[in-house]
Structures are given as structure tokens and as C-alpha cells.
């Protein structure tokens, strides 16, 4: 469905966009299978309306928001962000959505709120990967992610409700997903049902599965390689066919250092990968 949105100039970009069909047919969404083409094929029947997201935990004003609340109570914006997958490919995507900071502010976090935990829908009937180990890649479900409160309230942190001016297709994490563009793609959790503010650092799915390969922070960093491949460059998925891809250098914080580098000033990024 088409959406109405503002276009704040600081979040627009002249970079070449990844075409819609590639953004929507090349997805990691293990709940629907581990192949990149699986989510497009298997996720279409996901019921994304009605939907509700609860905001709970260390807040003075716990909320349950349905889709109309998300669209009407917050400013809906288009933001063009680069998406850098930990597998060393990348896209440029025009998301439509709302500021995560605005949503969190509304729930009024208390002084104990140090972290924000996110959870994907758990519904094995609709998400076959959650009940079938082979299909679901052997990860523990529901998928969970987390940010520090400073990261979650950073101006870049975004809850996407759509892309290319239309509501999100299921395979891209409909109806609401996180987008944190300075981090590897797996941090941007899909189909969120719960946002919980916490005092302790929450567990995160890939870190739990392979802690030596995936850290809590997962900031894009060309100088810290994945143990099994280099992160120094990335294959940008753009227009054109198979042989038109380009390999480009990966930027620190995916090029968003100006907005986020201060969050990690006192952190050893080699250890806190």
C-alpha cells in the first residue's frame, strides 16, 4: 500500500538506489528459510495486519501500539540508508518509517533503562523456520536483538514501516522492523512484536549462536574482519545484471561516523566487535 511521508533533507541521498526487486528478493530472514530467495517465496502469507508492538520494561508509560498508532502518532519519514550485510554485500534502500527515539520517548524510560531489547514474532505456524531446524538454520527463536539506550535514541535509529514509498513486504520484515544503518544488517531485526527497556544487556541471536563471530555491537568496521572473511570491502548490489556488480571499500560505521562515532569513544572496537 502507498504511504504518505516527509523527506527530511539530512536523510536523503544521491547514491544509486538498489532496485526494488533486488531489495525484496534477496533477504536474510531465517524464519522463512536460509536461502536468500526463500523469504520472498515463503513469507507472502504472513499476516501483518492486525499487528501490535508492546513497549515495556523500565518505562513509566508502557505502551501497546497498533499499526495505525505507529503511522499516526509519529512523523512518518523517508530515509535513504546504506545497508551493509555482515556477509559483505550491501544495498542502498529508501525506507519509510518513524524515529525509534520518538517511540521510546513516548514510553518515558526511567533511570534504570540502559538497554533496549527487541523481539521478532514467534509463530511457528506462520514462520516454518521456527519449527524446522533445517529450514530455520538451527538458530534459536524468537529472534532477539538489542541496543544500548544511547544507540536506540540516536537520530539514525529508525523503525521502518515501508520501503520505496509502500508498506514493507513480509520478506523485508513487515509490518515494522528496526534499521540501524551503521551496524551490520543482522542487528536490524524484522517483524518486531516487543521492545523492552532493560537495565541489563539483553542476549542477541547471532551473538548467542557464535559469540566469536558476532558481537553485541556489530558496528560496520572494515578493520575488524569476520573470522572467516574480510570486511574491508563489500559488493554493492545495484542496477544491472550479474556482471555489473562493484566491489567498493567498506567505510567505518558504514559511513555514518559523524552521527555515531562518539558513542564508542572509549571502547576497544577490536574486542567489542
Amino acid at each position: 500500500k502507498p504511504m504518505n511521508f516527509k523527506q527530511p533533507p539530512q536523510f536523503q541521498s544521491k547514491e544509486l538506489l538498489t532496485p526494488y526487486n533486488k531489495v525484496t528478493q534477496h533477504n536474510n530472514f531465517y524464519e522463512f528459510g536460509t536461502d536468500k530467495a526463500d523469504p520472498h517465496q515463503r513469507a507472502q502469507s504472513l499476516r501483518v495486519d492486525p499487528w501490535s508492538v508492546s513497549i515495556s520494561g523500565e518505562v513509566d508509560n508502557p505502551l501497546t501500539l497498533d499499526l495505525d498508532d505507529l503511522r499516526n502518532q509519529f512523523e512518518v519519514q523517508q530515509r535513504i540508508y546504506r545497508l551493509r550485510c555482515v556477509e559483505a554485500w550491501s544495498m542502498v534502500i529508501p525506507w519509510v518509517g518513524i524515529s525509534l527515539a520518538d517511540v521510546i520517548k513516548k514510553a518515558q524510560p526511567n533511570s534504570k533503562a540502559k538497554y533496549v531489547a527487541f523481539e521478532t514474532l514467534f509463530d511457528p505456524q506462520q514462520m516454518p523456520g521456527q519449527s524446522n531446524r533445517r529450514l530455520g538454520g538451527g538458530i534459536e527463536y524468537p529472534y532477539v536483538e538489542g541496543l544500548t539506550i544511547e544507540e536506540a535514541t540516536n537520530e539514525l535509529s529508525f523503525l521502518a514501516l515501508g520501503l520505496y514509498g509502500k508498506t514493507l513486504p513480509p520478506q523485508n520484515g513487515a509490518p515494522v522492523r528496526l534499521v540501524v544503518p551503521w551496524k551490520y544488517g543482522f542487528k536490524s531485526i524484522k517483524s518486531i512484536v516487543s521492545i523492552r527497556l532493560m537495565e541489563q544487556r539483553p542476549p542477541t541471536t547471532w551473538n548467542r549462536l557464535a559469540p566469536h563471530e558476532y558481537g553485541f555491537y556489530a558496528n560496520v568496521n572494515p578493520e575488524v574482519d569476520h573470522p572467516r572473511w574480510s570486511q574491508a570491502t563489500e559488493r554493492r548490489i545495484g542496477e544491472g545484471g550479474l556482471l555489473s556488480a562493484k566491489r567498493i571499500p567498506t567505510e567505518m560505521y558504514n559511513g555514518y561516523g559523524e552521527q555515531v562515532a562518539h558513542l564508542y569513544r572509549n571502547l576497544d572496537l577490536k574486542r567489542n566487535y
Binding site: N21, K22, V23, T24, Q25, H26, D35, K36, A37, H40, E87, W89, R235, I237, L242, A245
Partner: peptide, 10 residues
Amino acid sequence: DKAGGDPVQY
């Protein structure tokens, strides 16, 4: 075009 949006890994 049945090998996904980006067939490289496929």
C-alpha cells in the same frame, strides 16, 4: 530471475 534478487550466492 528465479534465483533471487541477487543470484551471486545462489
